[in-house]
Design a protein around this nucleic acid. Structure first.
Lengths: 209, 209
DNA sequence: TAATTTTCAGAACACTCGTTCTTTAAATTG
DNA sequence: CAATTTAAAGAACGAGTGTTCTGAAAATTA
């Protein structure tokens, strides 16, 4: 064991909460209720964290939400991105991508839809910090998809550009999470994914320069 | 002039607001700020309507929001639906459909995105009334698109069903309104629409039973 | 003009909001 | 065992919430 081990005891009273567990709980609260509707009172209770610690760690409600978004990106969006591989063929990876999107938006009845597409998008209406954050996360996702398309030799000078196709794929995925928010199950979303996959495949087969 | 004309004067003091104008203002407030963030105080000011009249006419905040959704459907969604025609070919009508979606979500800087996809979807997270309303409006839109596809002789027994394609088209449209919420302009959304249109066209050309 | 009816303007209400502060509790250090 | 340090628990704060109530204002009817 190293002397500078990260598990050395702090000096004062040890905290009774785990930061990651607390952040997971906050993320889920925002996801279920929305940014405005999630109250600090309920957040503290769900996080098992006293108000003082919450404000010391995250600054304010907006800061907590941003941290919750980070955790969402690291634990949820990362799985969707990872499905893009490259693992198999483009079609196989896109299919896996959509499967992950559907799983993310429907697997937990308490948190339907997507934290970014359903909650952050609402909050982005008037808050410029959230608008920028939404744009950043949307753009990052599209770049990952575009990269995967280019890796599958999508012509850079095609009439329908890889970035446009990536934008369409991302739009379908987001639209599907909205449907999940309205109570649709995974089974009901699958046909949409299959259609989008088929459409992209057909597009790839008939690229005109 | 008929004796039972709808414009006969009321008995007491006339109201100083116009119901449709007020509802338009309420709709725009919710659209910009979200359901929770839009306060009754600001709503009354924007609607030029006293609190008492608001509560008498709409019951409560939720009732006002539902009425605002109705107006949104009648004045905004109706234009998108109308573009489906049938006016020209399927491709032409779908193109017009996407044009209307883009216009709806980007034409007014103060109300980016879509009231249903960006605001109602957030509120639907925990409120079952809103969940049901979101499902109803989503389903209605998809049925209209499916009807248009069937009118263009989309085979009822196709491997990729008309309802699945309609679901995909609606998903793309909704995903585009989310992008608009993040600040994207009409020009930036157009490639997504063009790609979706091309994809559906390719799909229609290669339907396997 | 007097009585009646409806609306208006805003005070009032009971809460809840996000945030800060104070006191007590629990750990380590010397 | 003190002294110190950190966290916990929750009271406190001012502002804002959705909603209801009250008295004055403005129209019509008789």
């Amino acid at each position: 064991m190293s002397a500078t081990s990260p598990t050395i005891r702090q000096r004062g009273r040890p905290s009774g909460f785990d930061r990651q567990t607390a952040l997971e709980a906050a993320m889920r609260s925002f996801w279920a209720e929305g940014f405005e509707a999630a109250s600090i009172d309920r957040l503290c209770r769900a996080m098992n964290m006293p108000r003082a610690s919450l404000y010391q760690l995250f600054g304010d409600k907006q800061g907590l939400f941003m941290s919750a978004l980070d955790r969402y990106g690291e634990t949820r969006v990362s799985r969707v991105i990872a499905a893009l591989g490259p693992v198999g063929s483009l079609a196989e990876d896109l299919s896996a991508f959509f499967d992950e999107v559907i799983h993310l938006a429907t697997s937990d009845r308490g948190t339907p839809g997507c934290l970014i597409s359903c909650v952050l998008a609402d909050a982005a209406g008037t808050n410029p910090v959230f608008t920028a954050e939404l744009d950043r996360r949307f753009t990052a996702m599209e770049h990952r998809i575009e990269e995967r398309l280019l890796l599958a030799r999508w012509p850079v000078d095609a009439k329908i550009s890889a970035s446009a196709v990536a934008g369409m794929i991302a739009s379908v995925a987001r639209g599907m999470t909205l449907k999940a928010r309205s109570g649709q199950t995974a089974d009901e979303l699958l046909p949409i994914a299959r259609t989008a996959l088929m459409a992209v495949t057909r597009l790839a087969d008939h690229i005109e320069k």
